[in-house]
Nucleic acid binder design. Sequence first.
DNA 1: TTGTACGCGTTATCAG
DNA 2: CTGATAACGCGTACAA
Lengths: 366, 366
Amino acid sequence: MQPPAPSPLRGVPSPLRATIADVAREAGVHASTVSRALNPATRGMVTEAVAQRVTEVADRLGWRPSAVAAGLRTRKSRTIGILVPDLINPIFPPILHAVETVLATQGYVTLVANTDNDAARESLLIERMATHLVDGLILASAAAGTDALSLCARFGIPAVLINRRMPEGAGCAAVSAVTNDDIHGIGLAVDHLVALGHRRIAHLAGPQGVSTARDRRTGFLDRMRHHGLEPAEITTAAAYTREAGRAAMAALLQGPAGTGPSGNEPGCTAVAVANDMLCLGVYDAMEAAGRRVAADISVTGFNDMPFVDRIHPALTTIRIQHDAMGRQAACILLAEMAEPGLARQSIRLVPELVVRASTAPPAKAP
Amino acid sequence: MQPPAPSPLRGVPSPLRATIADVAREAGVHASTVSRALNPATRGMVTEAVAQRVTEVADRLGWRPSAVAAGLRTRKSRTIGILVPDLINPIFPPILHAVETVLATQGYVTLVANTDNDAARESLLIERMATHLVDGLILASAAAGTDALSLCARFGIPAVLINRRMPEGAGCAAVSAVTNDDIHGIGLAVDHLVALGHRRIAHLAGPQGVSTARDRRTGFLDRMRHHGLEPAEITTAAAYTREAGRAAMAALLQGPAGTGPSGNEPGCTAVAVANDMLCLGVYDAMEAAGRRVAADISVTGFNDMPFVDRIHPALTTIRIQHDAMGRQAACILLAEMAEPGLARQSIRLVPELVVRASTAPPAKAP
DNA sequence: TTGTACGCGTTATCAG
DNA sequence: CTGATAACGCGTACAA
C-alpha cells in the first residue's frame, strides 16, 4: 500500500493541456502575440513570419485555446442552447440537425436539452445555460405560462422561436420566430376531406397552450366555415403524445352524448388530427374500438414525421419543412447575435398536403 | 461599519449580471465569504446568520455564480457531453432522456451532439467539448476507425460507452460500457423463427464497423449452428439507415446468384435483420418486389424502437432496455468522475423477444 | 469564523 | 508591430 498521502501533487503537472504561455515561451514571443496570431480576427496585426512560427509551435504542442478562459474574458462561449419540449417526438431531430449543421459552420457548439413540456424545468435550463454564457437560444418549447422570454431578456440572451410561436400578447413581437403556416396547413387537410365527400368532420386538437394547437384549431374552424360546414365535434388532447391521442379519440368515438342508435356512433366520418404523434394514439383507439381507419373513418395528421409513411394505413398528413425551419432559425439567430439591434422577423413556412392511405371517401350510411 | 467601498465603476457597467463582489458589498462581507456561504460544500464554514443574510442578498440581486469563472478556477464545468451517431434513429432519444434525467439530479447540464457517423466530425466535437471543459463524455457513437478514446485519454476526460462497445483490442478494457447482450438477443430471434418452422433463414447485417452489427452477426451464426442449420444468406447493409436496409434487402431478394426457377427466388423464408431502422427499408424493398412480410417472408428486427408496433405488419423484434441503459451509463460516469481510479465495468443488459405480426410459419413450397 | 492574496488562461488596452 | 499589464469572476490555501 501507499504511504499516507505522499502528496504526489507534483505541483499540478498539467500533462493535460498546454497553455498559451507555453506556446509563447517556446516561440520566443509574448503571450499576447500568440493570442493575436491565432485569432483569425486579429491575425492581421502580426508579422506573417511570427504568425507562421506561432502556429507551428502551437500545434506542435497540441495547444487548444481554453473556451472557458476566453469566455470569462469575452463574455461569450461560442455555444448555442436549444430547448426542445420532447425529443422523443421525431419531428425534432431533423430540425435540430439542420440547426446544428448551420451553427457548426460558424464554429458554434450546441447544447440540446429537453424541457419535458415543463415550465419549471425550462426555466431551470435557461438559467443554467445563462450561467454557462450561451450566446444564443433556440426555443422549440414555447408555450403559455412560460417565462422563457423574460428570462432571456433578463440575461440578455438573443433567442429565436422555432415551430411554435408565443401566445399572443406575451411579447411575441419582441422575438423572431420561424414557424409553419398552421392555419393554412390544416386548411389543406379540410379541403382534402371535403373533396373526398366528407361533411361530418371532427377535429382532434392539441394542448391549447401551444400555438400550433391553437392555430390548427382556428384554421380548422375557418376552413369548415368556408365550406359552409359545421364542425362535427372538437376534442382536445391533453398533450402531444400518443397516449393523449388515444384517450381523446376514444372519447370522440363514443360520439357527442351518444348520437348513434346504440349511443356510441361517432358523429363524424373523418377526423383532422392536430399532429402525427396524436395519430398513433388515434390508430390505437380505433383498433381497440374495432373501427377501420379510412374504411370507417378517415384520418389526417400534421407534420409528416418520419416513419408515418409506414404505419398502416399510411398516414395522409401535412408535410412541414423541417430542414428549412432549422436552417432559417439558425441564420436569424446568428444575424441577431452579430447585430442585436436588428429588426425581429417572423417567418412562416408553407406546408403541403401528402395524400396516403388513411383517407378515403366516406362509407355509405347503412 | 466599513467606509463605503469606492466603486470605481470604470469600464462598462454590467446591467446584466451581478457579480459575487456586488453581493459581498451589499451583505457587508468579503467575497470569499459569499462564495463559502453559497457553496453547499463549504457552507458549514460560515456562521448560520451570515449564510442566511448572504443567501438573502444573493437572490435579491438575482445573482447566479458564473459557471465559466468557476470552471476556469476549478477546471470543471458541470457539463457532460453526449455523442450520438444519428439522432434521427428513434432509439436514442429515450436513452438520452434517461441519461439526462440522472445527470440533472446532480446538477449537470448535457451537451448533445450528432456525429453523423463521421469519425472526423466526432473528433472535432470531442476537441470542442474538451475546450469547453466537459467533465465527462457518454459515447453512443463507438465504431472502428475512431480515435474518440485516445482523444478522451489525451484530454483526461472520463468516458462511458453506451449501446456500442469498442472494437476488440482498441483499448476496450480501458473504458466502461453499457451495452445489450446482442449475441443473446439475436439468438432469441433465431429461436423464434426456428420454432415457427423456418429452416432457410437469412441475416441482414449492419455495418461491420460497429459492435452491435458484429455481435448480432456472430450471434446469428452461433445460434443457427446450435440448431444445426446453415445460414441461407448474409447480406450487409452499408449503414443503419432505412435506405441501406432497402438496398440490402433488394439485393437479398434477388437470391444468391439466382437460385429460384426464374433466377430471382430468394433463398430464404425468413430474415433476421440487425436493427429496426433497417427493417423499414426491408419493408420498402419487399413492397417494391411484391412480396408480403410474414406471409411470404418473415422478418425480425432489433431494438423495439418507438412506433414499430404500428408499422404494417407490426414488427416482431428484440426489445432493449433503453431506460436502464441510459441510467446505468450516467451512474457509472458519475462514479468514475468522482473517483477516477475506479475499476472499469462492462454491463451487459439482457434484451427480450417481442412477438408481433411480421413473423409467421413459412409458406408451404408450391 | 472571516478576511487576504493569488491564480485559473485569455484577451483588451495601453505603451513603446 | 509587439510587449507589458490589468482585468474577467470565482475558489481556496493561508493568515488573522
